[in-house]
């Protein structure tokens, strides 16, 4: 009962936010009265129409790039983060390298990736992966480092080896932090994706938006923006649900 209420409350506040957002947009369009900011109704109509056209293809390409990047970043960052977190000696040796390279904005390497990896998906995936990887690595390492030592001793005393510690202590213990960093990373990933897709490519929502802009088709441009926003939103919801599902013990 209480859960049902909470759930419907969530839906209502979501609906409310959407209405406010649309109203704000509509007002802005009214005030600015510029073709660059079309009113929401036209943009939404155009969005639905474009979905039946090539927007869905661009959406698919972008989704693919983000998903693969996030997954790769997690697959690389999580085990390495745990490894560093549980081995302070190794961490002391590796972390200077991390701190030296972490603040360098990785987008500056985009031209190099384009040259080395071509203008296809790989250069974009590598760029996004690289950026998210750092965030996941650092978060996971800190989470692993701060895990109560009691969990480790108790599982070891039960006869657990290194693999068991990964499986029963480090991975589940770090999972909430990992998912949080993925959620935060998602925003970064979308931003980088847009940037990467506006450059030397014919595919993806970034391209769709910039292409519409160059044709001064602003409704279509906003259709692209809506698509990008919805994509981010749904990915976020998926991560949120995953967190609720896998980390039920955090939300008791």
């Amino acid at each position: 009962m209480r859960q049902a209420l909470k759930k419907s409350g969530g839906t209502i506040s979501l609906l409310f936010s959407v209405i406010i957002l649309l109203a704000g947009w509509w007002l802005l369009a009214l005030v600015l009265n510029s073709p660059a900011v079309p009113p929401p109704l036209g943009a939404l109509k155009c969005f639905l129409a474009s979905l039946r056209g090539d927007l869905s293809i661009h959406l698919g390409v972008s989704l693919y790039r983000v998903l693969v990047s996030l997954m790769l970043a997690a697959v690389l960052g999580v085990p390495l983060g745990i490894l560093l977190g549980k081995n302070p000696d190794l961490d002391a040796r590796i972390s200077p390298m991390i701190y030296l390279t972490y603040p360098v904005p990785k987008v500056v390497f985009m031209p190099i990736f384009l040259i080395l990896l071509g203008i296809g998906d790989i250069s974009k995936i590598v760029l996004i992966t690289l950026i998210i990887f750092y965030q996941i690595l650092v978060t996971t390492r800190d989470a692993a480092k701060n895990l109560e030592k009691g969990y480790i001793s108790s599982v070891r005393s039960l006869g657990g080896g290194s693999r068991d510690l990964y499986l029963h202590v480090f991975l589940p213990g770090c999972l909430p932090s990992i998912l949080t960093s993925l959620r935060l990373g998602l925003g970064t990933a979308m931003a980088v994706l847009f940037l990467a897709e506006t450059y030397a490519t014919q595919e993806g929502i970034g391209f769709f938006i910039m292409d519409s802009l160059s044709r001064m088709n602003y409704e279509e441009m906003f259709a692209g923006i809506i698509a990008m926003g919805l994509m981010g939103f749904f990915l976020y919801i998926i991560l949120d649900k995953t967190e609720k599902l896998l980390c039920g013990w955090v939300h008791l």
Partner: peptide, 9 residues
Amino acid sequence: LQDFGLLPW
């Protein structure tokens, strides 16, 4: 152990 013996997850 005193605390932290049981795995909270």
